[in-house]
Design a protein around this nucleic acid. Structure first.
Lengths: 120, 120
DNA sequence: CGCGTAATCAACCAGTCGGTTGAATACCAC
DNA sequence: GTGGTATTCAACCGACTGGTTGATTACGCG
């Protein structure tokens, strides 16, 4: 299943530096050195970050001499969106249902009628 | 900013067990023991998972005697969706632009468009 | 060929993470 | 109060993570 894949994607995006890299790759491809430039960490650390993004399927790389330009793979976003939308919708539907239930329960007086039972 | 918040949310959802908990909470509120029942880990471990989800703002809890029912907070999903959609759109736009650029760049004698040149 | 550049590999370190066990807290019922 | 139930706290453990430094590979260029 794509369960493990989803874990890798969410895990990859849990790091602010990696999210920032994704944000910058959204504006265009870039090499490891270019990506590493703004941060005050070593280029090796950034290389590791990119590897994580690559393993998650968020980034692909081609070859240009000794350079390995990184490219953002937008397709993976769909995987996340599908997962999120699914449960968001369920939660919202449930919330809406709860609203009507609460309205129907409006005949009950007081806070929550602690000792009361057999409400029907 | 909500940068740290986004990190917590993605980090929380990086764990399959926690995603499963979210999935089950989407169908209705539940107590810690109820949530822990399907897994073969201790209830303490599940309690920790729920705390992570709570710190990420994905879950809220009320009180019912000694029970602390968990409730899924759908609002946080919007935060994720906004982030994702933003960069997905950028990536897609860029992809579309790249298409046209490649067509305009047809004077380059690369692999694609082998015989074509001087299109303008 | 040797030099500089781009990137990775390897080993290491401190800190976090998911899990455990055991004790403690909070609450209801008798 | 005593007992049972629901949950958390505390300490600990092995594995993973993000970072470092140092060496290595893979190029292109004179």
């Amino acid at each position: 299943m794509s369960d493990d894949r989803l874990s890798r994607v969410f895990s990859a995006l849990a790091d602010p530096t990696r999210r920032d890299i994704v944000a910058r790759l959204a504006t265009g491809d870039a090499t490891v050195n270019e990506l590493a430039e703004p941060y005050d960490v070593t280029v090796q650390a950034v290389s590791k970050h990119i590897k994580v993004l690559e393993d998650a399927g968020l980034v692909s790389r081609s070859r240009d001499a000794q350079r390995r330009p990184c490219h953002l793979e937008g397709e993976v976003f769909d995987l996340m969106t599908r997962w999120i939308e699914r449960y968001r919708r369920e939660a919202e539907d449930r919330f809406r249902r709860l609203d009507t239930v609460l309205e129907q329960m409006a005949d009950e007086p007081g806070e929550d009628t602690p000792g009361k039972k057999a409400a029907s």
